[in-house]
Amino acid sequence: MSETKYLETHEWYIVDGDKFTVGISDYAQGELGDIVFVTLPEVGQEFSKGDAIVEVEATKTVAEAYAPMNCVITEVNTNLETEPELINNDPVGDGWMVKAEIKEMDDSGMTYQQYESFIS
């Protein structure tokens, strides 16, 4: 498994072979406030880099999480359907959103240190 990387749109992703896992950053969940509902994609759906893959409803606002690279969804975190607060409580762990097969590798995200200086 490679290093966890971050996007300017506040997703994290981690590449593992020909797949990756994606979620939103701790900073993002803090800005959104309490997450009350998550709309997940279907397994098998194809996305291009930058497409909205997940919609997150929070008490403060609604936000989308974007695909970090071209991909096909292989697994969604169905726990989020009943426990969307997992994203608030453990955004980079149990609050992961989807796993996907990489169609075109693009590991150009920021390291945690780079992301930290980006958000500060």
Binding site: G33, D34, K60
Partner: peptide
């Protein structure tokens, strides 16, 4: 202040 412990709490 918008929230301390989170809006739902």
């Amino acid at each position: 202040p918008f929230s301390y412990d989170g809006t739902l709490k």
